[in-house]
Amino acid sequence: MRPVNDQILAVVYGGYSSEFEISVKSGRSVAGWLRNAGRNVYEVIISRKGWWALDPSADGQEQRWPIDRNDFSFTPEGREKITFDKVFITIHGDPGENGRLQAYFEMLGITFSGCSSLCAAIAFDKYACKSYLRDSRAHLGNDILLHRGDLYNPEEIKNRTGLPAFVKPCGGGSSFGVTKIHSLDELDAALNSAFAESDTAIVEQCLYGREIDCAVFDDEYGPHALPLIEIIPRREFFDYEAKYNGASSELCPAPLPEEDRVRIQNEAVMIYHRLGCSGLVRMDFIYGPDNKPYFLEVNPNPGMTEASLVPQMVKAAGMSMETFLTGLIDRAGEK
């Protein structure tokens, strides 16, 4: 493999889900930070219409060259074929967060950032992820799984989760398809919204407490938790408007006593190890009045725009995004 500063990196974004536009913003931010660090970066956009490498020309006009999916390369007109040494995946949702793209790169033998295909597939599916953690010491709320087309008894769901409850697509992010229901009359519409994003849905107990997010990454010394963020939504929950349109306050580092901070970070590191994560992930918790961090979900490819949570955590840790991201991509493939 070429020396670090000579390596050709691909930052991949886009995807096939409702999170396409958010992924584009994340990917362009990551590409910019890596270029600031002196790295040789091409942006690769994936959509249902095709895969393209974006090649800015000297006059600033962006050119698109189709990706050859046989070896994940591209050939600009009049130039030699370009292959990539490593790939930084910033797709949120299908196919870059659910293990499909990771499996493709594993088959080609191309090094990429983040979790393996198996880990990503488990982590991205909310019910599968919680099932993987049930015999660990992780604190989990009650839930029930439904497949599209399943017959279900609303009263049984209520007895399992109570009301209010959250209805979520098992595979999805950015709160697309998520509904908080207060009565069983709202269940059918909530499930329809969830099934618009995924073939499976999870109905979860509504947990009360403080919403705390923790990102974990690994280096040569093992996994480390970044400073915590407390989310204070100005809406009923941390939905799309709260996440991306300013309808929330985000406190970083979270104003927690040291003992509570350590408890949540240790829980996140335990879950990271239990799932077999690598690279960077972000986890969402509800810190209950019983001083237990209740796990909600893990994001294998968290948002990476300048306004996203992870860049705030990195800044609070005293690092630049350039240093942090180059560390992630340089370590990719070492585990």
Rank of each mutant, 00 (worst) to 15 (best):
M1K: 09
M1V: 00
R2T: 09
Q7W: 11
Q7Y: 08
L9Q: 03
A10M: 13
V12I: 10
Y13Q: 15
E19V: 05
I22G: 12
V24Y: 06
V24M: 10
G27M: 12
R28L: 14
G32Y: 02
W33I: 09
A37D: 03
A37I: 09
V41Q: 03
E43Q: 13
V44D: 01
I46M: 04
S47N: 03
S47F: 04
K49C: 00
G50Y: 06
A58S: 07
A58E: 11
Q61E: 14
Q63H: 12
W65E: 00
W65M: 00
P66Q: 07
R69P: 15
D71S: 06
R79T: 03
E80D: 09
K81A: 05
K81F: 05
I82L: 15
K86V: 09
F88C: 13
D94E: 08
P95L: 04
P95V: 02
E97D: 10
G99H: 05
G99D: 04
E106T: 12
G109F: 08
I110N: 10
G114A: 12
C115L: 10
C115H: 04
S116T: 05
S116I: 06
S117E: 02
C119G: 15
A120D: 12
F124A: 12
D125F: 09
A128E: 14
C129A: 11
S131Y: 07
Y132H: 10
S136G: 08
L151P: 01
N153Q: 10
P154I: 03
I157N: 04
N159D: 13
L163V: 14
P169R: 07
C170Q: 12
G171T: 07
G172E: 01
V178P: 08
V178H: 01
K180L: 10
K180A: 08
K180W: 09
L184P: 15
D185S: 02
L187E: 14
L187W: 05
A189Y: 01
F195L: 03
E197L: 15
D199V: 05
T200R: 09
E204I: 13
L207A: 04
E211T: 02
E211G: 00
A215I: 10
D218H: 13
D218F: 08
D218V: 15
P233G: 01
Y240M: 02
E241V: 06
Y244I: 11
S248W: 14
S248L: 10
S248R: 07
E250R: 07
E259T: 08
R261T: 09
V262W: 00
Q265Y: 07
E267C: 08
I271Q: 08
H273D: 12
S278M: 08
G279M: 14
M283T: 02
I286L: 12
G288H: 15
L296N: 03
E297A: 06
V298L: 14
V298Y: 11
P300L: 13
A307P: 01
S308A: 13
V310R: 15
V310Q: 06
M313R: 01
M313W: 10
V314G: 00
V314Y: 06
K315D: 08
M319D: 11
I329H: 03
D330Y: 14
D330E: 15
